[in-house]
Design a protein around this nucleic acid. Structure first.
Lengths: 235, 235
DNA sequence: CATCGCATTTGCGCCAGCGCAAATTGTTCT
DNA sequence: AGAACAATTTGCGCTGGCGCAAATGCGATG
């Protein structure tokens, strides 16, 4: 509650979905928002839950993972500061299609489906932004389909690292550090392979000094070597 | 030109994106529409082309395929009567991310990005419908990612057939017929496998009488057998 | 009708990557 | 610090499915 006034107005304008909104519109947006603070390793929502809300991450990071009836799971994406999540089910069936886990302590905002619908109606720009966001994500998903269908594990892993670095990379002394905990298993679940294969591929890269893992944070030292392996246009 | 009056007003209301619009709004929509008739085997747009438009298929069927720099291609989806296509790039970078080919003679309508933006602004319901459409497609894409990542070829093919049958299936004497030309290569490119593997799997199914191919149309006779192989929840 | 071109089938060999299982290292909790 | 647990590495054998290439089937065209 006390947090709300501290970080809402400034941050809301920074969220991609509210770009270009007038201050008065942002006020409207803020009024319908629910702010929350969650400790790490919390389940934010479960695959199959109803009453979806539109979420935005103010700080921290979140893993979105989908699992099939057979238990096999896939990491849909990692969410970093400023991004929306849980938005796919909005205006469709109303059930979350994946699990969301807080990987670090997080603060998030969310809006109910009905409130968001009202906001979009009153402030048309929100719809446009939203469409842009989902459209972009759809393109990413389709590129991923193509990757899974046509490339082999090593290259898929290289791509995954590059994408993560581009989206959540922080320039540090040693190279580009991906700013959230990333286990082998996560990388495997991103790339559609097994923990074992991921390990077998990544370890040599670490031995060669292309990567470093410290405090659960992965740093890419030799970006160019990874790019070499990825060697493909459509990123 | 003469076609326009014949099939526009009635059909536009049938398009998913214009559901729930008032007649006066549909008039507005119609005014900005460009109707076209194209013979089969025409390229409707190329991957990489600029000046995207929002397309809707009035009649016929279209294959959307994406190819990587290495030549490997993936069938993104098949479009049937009433569906939108080429919509992914709208409001993002403005370039088509895939090729669209007319598999039969087709009639299509399209709107320029600017016109569609205007329509959405004037008739908010269009935005909502559009978001629902893209959201649904995003869910499909993510399910496909999971499938590619976790299931093997046989099961993926079974799923693909079931999905196609559900979306474009026509009840006939022998079973459910998928109403557009579907080559082995297409099925392979949908499932992320090779022509050869697809053949190796489908031929036995045909021999067992579960499927029939006639006039380039595939008919599923024993739906239950295919479902057996697919045996998984999240369709 | 003969020919050409395209789609499909099928045999064969090979290898990327999975699964199992054990060893090793890192992390958390008391 | 020590114990209990979680994550990672790695050896080994196996196989699903790819790649090559040849054969066959089928429709279109002159």
């Amino acid at each position: 509650m006390n947090m709300m006034d501290a970080n809402s107005p400034a941050n809301l304008a920074g969220l991609e979905i509210f770009h270009g909104l007038a201050p008065v519109a942002l006020e409207d947006v803020r009024a319908a928002a629910r702010f929350r603070h969650l400790p790490r390793n919390t389940r934010i929502f479960n695959q199959g839950d109803g009453r979806v809300r539109a979420h935005a991450l103010i700080d921290g990071c979140v893993r979105i993972a989908q699992s099939g009836s057979d238990g096999a799971q896939v990491v849909v994406r990692f969410i970093v500061r400023g991004e929306m999540f849980g938005t796919v089910a909005l205006f469709t069936d109303g059930f979350y299609p994946a699990d969301a886990d807080a990987l670090t302590d997080v603060s998030e905002v969310s809006w109910s489906e009905a409130d968001l619908a009202g906001l979009m109606e009153r402030h048309h720009q929100i719809s446009v932004n939203f469409i842009r966001i989902i459209g972009k994500r759809l393109q990413e998903a389709q590129n991923r389909v193509r990757e899974l269908a046509t490339q082999r594990v090593e290259r898929r892993i290289a791509h995954a690292l590059l994408r993560l670095a581009r989206r959540a990379g922080q320039r540090t002394a040693e190279g580009i550090t991906i700013e959230f905990p990333l286990r082998r298993k996560d990388i495997a679940d991103i790339c559609g392979t097994t923990l074992h294969s991921a390990s077998r591929i990544l370890t040599p890269w670490e031995k060669a000094g292309w990567l470093v893992t410290r405090d659960q944070r992965l740093t890419i030292c030799k970006m160019s070597e990874i790019e070499e392996i990825a060697e493909d246009s459509t990123a």
